[in-house]
């Protein structure tokens, strides 16, 4: 088990955003998380990445280590990288700098040697920059390395957000709606990039996604959230036919044939 979460809960005021969710991930799997808007998917991501602290009773083990209640940067250091729904790229920094920030916790030199500008610092900077250029080339943004990230197009920003997460050399990559707002062709391109990265670096991936095709095509296991609770979990084929899932997504009024037609078309 790479990631073992049990009993995660988070309330905002009286509202249970996430309640008593368990999540177990095998190494190398691609997990999809689906659910209607407001079902707690992003809150679950924020709990895993340390942005929110889980309420007492929840525990999280990553790679055999208890990482419950750690700060976001401590979680990141242990190899959990995430992207944000709103991307949150550093718009005024260059594309290359965005990746270098992602690489931050793998820096070997200390603060004092950086301040006095020791030779080792310059050598490492040079090496890391060329590594990050390789990564940029891999995701297809090498031409834009020195441009401010804010000047990239929407699709390129999504790639950059992915690249910044990959610069952390994570074991677990969490993607929060990576394909939102992309045209079908670009969705496929992005997924190809994700799959290529997964193969190249041996990642485990969690994807939150509304485009069901993405989840059904790429994920090994899908977990379904509704009102903060996990209502179903299983391989995509089984999830497709699960009545509770169909209800959560589409309401009760449709009959099965219509639902299947809808799922096929989306």
């Amino acid at each position: 088990m790479l990631l073992e979460i049990s009993g995660f809960s988070k309330h905002f005021g009286g509202l249970a955003a996430v309640s008593n969710v368990d999540l177990n991930l095998e190494e190398g799997e691609i997990r999809g998380i689906i659910g209607p808007n407001g079902s707690g998917k992003s809150t679950l991501f924020n709990l895993i990445s340390g942005v929110y602290q889980p309420e007492p009773g929840g525990t999280m083990f990553f790679d055999g280590e208890n990482v419950t209640g750690l700060q976001p940067h401590e979680i990141a250091r242990r190899g959990i990288a995430r992207t944000f729904q709103m991307l949150r790229i550093f718009a005024q920094m260059t594309v290359l700098e965005n990746l270098l920030v992602g690489h931050h916790c793998h820096t070997h030199y200390g603060t004092p040697s950086a301040i006095v500008g020791r030779k080792a610092v310059w050598e490492e900077e040079r090496r890391v920059r060329s590594e990050m250029m390789d990564l940029l080339a891999f995701i297809g943004l090498a031409d834009y390395a020195r441009m401010p990230a804010g000047e990239l197009s929407g699709g390129q920003r999504r790639l950059l957000a992915l690249g910044r997460a990959m610069a952390m050399r994570p074991k677990l990559l969490m993607l929060d709606e990576p394909a939102a707002g992309l045209s079908p062709v670009n969705v496929d391109k992005l997924l190809d990039t994700v799959m290529a990265l997964k193969e190249r670096y041996g990642l485990t991936v969690i994807i939150i996604e509304h485009i069901l095709k993405v989840v059904m095509d790429t994920c090994d296991v899908v977990s379904v959230l509704e009102h903060g609770e996990k209502i179903a979990e299983g391989p995509p084929a089984a999830i497709k036919d699960d009545h509770r899932v169909i209800e959560a997504y589409l309401g009760k009024e449709m009959d099965d044939a219509e639902v299947r037609a809808y799922l096929r078309s989306s």
Partner: peptide
């Protein structure tokens, strides 16, 4: 160096900076 980049990152977006491993 990476210190300057960490400063800029927390100026632009402290949350994204933290998620990138910056204390």
């Amino acid at each position: 160096s990476n210190i300057g980049r960490a400063f800029k990152a927390l100026r632009e977006d402290p949350l994204a900076a933290a998620a990138s491993g910056i204390n």
